[in-house]
């Protein structure tokens, strides 16, 4: 199933994005500014053990001069995400997928919908233009950094499938962390192709199961 496409000019189109994905993306700025964000929003430019007078002066300069610039960079990345979400278009591909699903499920799906269990969800396409690819990568990275700082108890904790002893909050964080991580992969490909001056060709995603955990509906 193809769920994203590179555009000819080096952008990314996400196809048939469902409400669950949209919610995770809309929450991104709040997550990225929440607990755990201080690690990258107010980074120490020196070894934390360095307590010399010279280090103290440099840290003060960093807070006064560099940190405001970092905040501006990071906040602009959030704006890039919101800008794309605000331009979401109804997905023709998504409608086709819904139709196929109905045909496959037949009466069972119809009855389920009539019982009020699940209504039809709106699927949209999102187009990330080339000039916003890097900002999107950065915004998703902020989300992952903040979630990891807040929830991970070990280095690979949020990558773990073993969640038997974990809280609902941790599972919620893990879902967001993995979603952001997987969305970063095609963005990273575009950034590499742009840096190396390669054509923005779509690779074969037939065997790409990265998104299978996150069906659009």
């Amino acid at each position: 199933m193809r769920l994203y496409e590179f555009t000819d000019d080096g952008g990314l189109q996400l196809l048939a994005v469902g409400p669950e994905w949209m919610e995770k993306l809309r929450r991104l700025p709040a997550i990225a500014r929440g607990d755990g964000a201080e690690r990258f929003r107010a980074p120490d430019p020196l070894d934390p053990e360095n307590r010399s007078p010279e280090a103290s002066a440099l840290r003060e300069d960093w807070v006064d001069l560099v940190v405001p610039d970092l905040h501006e960079v990071f906040d602009n990345q959030h704006c890039a995400v919101i800008e794309v979400l605000d331009k979401a278009q109804p997905s023709e591909f998504g409608q086709w997928m819904l139709l196929q699903q109905k045909l496959l499920q037949g009466d069972a799906a119809t009855e389920k919908n009539e019982e009020g269990g699940e209504g039809e969800c709106e699927l949209v396409d999102l187009t990330i233009p080339p000039e916003l690819v890097e900002s999107w990568y950065g915004a998703l990275n902020q989300g992952r950094l903040a979630l990891h700082a807040r929830y991970a108890e070990s280095e690979s904790d949020l990558d773990s499938a073993d969640d038997a002893s974990k809280s609902d909050a941790w599972k919620h964080a893990r879902d967001h962390y993995l979603f952001y991580s997987r969305l970063q992969a095609p963005l990273m490909q575009l950034m590499q192709m742009g840096f190396e001056g390669k054509d923005f060709e779509n690779d074969d995603q037939e065997d790409d199961e990265e998104f299978d955990d996150y069906p659009p509906f």
């Binding site: 430019p45 020196l46 070894d47 560099v66 610039d69 970092l70 902020q142 950094l145």
Partner: peptide, 22 residues
Amino acid sequence: AELYVHQLHAAQLKASLERAGE
């Protein structure tokens, strides 16, 4: 060196300045 660390922080990498030999 300060400029590079600033840029690395903007790229969200963990980076620091040190005096050579420290």
